[in-house]
Amino acid sequence: MSAAPTRSDTSSCRRARALVALRHALNLGLPILFVLIPILSFVLVSFWTLQDGQIVRTFTLANYRSFFTEGSYLPVYLSTVWLSLQVTFVNVTLATAIALFIFRRTPRVRFFILMSFMLPLFMSYIIKVYAIRTILGQRGLLNEGLMALGLIDQPIEVLLFSRTAIFVALAVIYLPYAILPIYLALDRIPANYLAASADLGASALQGLRHIVLPLGRPGIAAGAVFTFILTFGDFVTPQMVGGTQGFTFGRIVFSQFGLALNWPLGSALAVILLATTLLAVALAGLTLRREHVR
């Protein structure tokens, strides 16, 4: 009489414990399996080498050495960093102005303006690249239009397959990614802060400079980091609009997994790419923290 319930108690207890274990295994195990291990494995591969088409699994820094000494890796890396910084600067400036513009509308209108800036974000990436090429291309609408109007008689070579074209394409594609975080930061500013500043006699410009922009700074930093990470890692846009001119660091990394087929070297270059983006995140975090302390 008394033995039966105890036995079923222990068995249900064991089942409950098994369920808890299964829960941890699923919720921690899946991310470890599909996120953590892949990341660790590519870092590991970056320390191996490729010899005669075979991957040699001994620890070496040879790939990292080649980044600094061989071929055009370092110059391309530096020029890509510079390109991404330029895009980031221009886009954050534009995005701040646009976010401010939305912020200064009445709440009713805000949503629709924000929507119209966010809509292209969800538009197919590859189609955006293609569309920009349609306009900027050597036989694109811009060149053809200018020629038809008689403003130029030769297509402007600069427009496609050039650094300028990559710059414009990246700026257009990644603009919404900068607008959203900046606007969300502005949106959190309590309305009475501005009312108070106006009551105390501050002009709209002063309110903007001393209240809105400082409070929007975390959003601006986030927008800058997003833009930098995405432009720095993009390898399709430079290829599609840049042609042979558009040899960016991301393309070099990708080519190691395609034609060049040197996975260890590609992984090492990818580690450098990753380290660069982490550095950008850290720098942004640091500037924000320093402001907090002050």
């Binding site: 921690l28 996120v35 590519f42 890692g233 993009d234 991301g250 990394v253 992984s267 990818a270 983006t277």
Partner: peptide, 26 residues
């Protein structure tokens, strides 16, 4: 811990997520 790992692939550049998976599958 779970959340950090889940968010990682979205925060990293897609090129990193892509090649990390490629190498792991291989």
């Amino acid at each position: 811990l779970m959340q950090v790992m889940v968010f990682l692939p979205f925060l990293l550049p897609p090129i990193i997520t892509g090649l990390a998976l490629l190498i792991a599958f291989r």
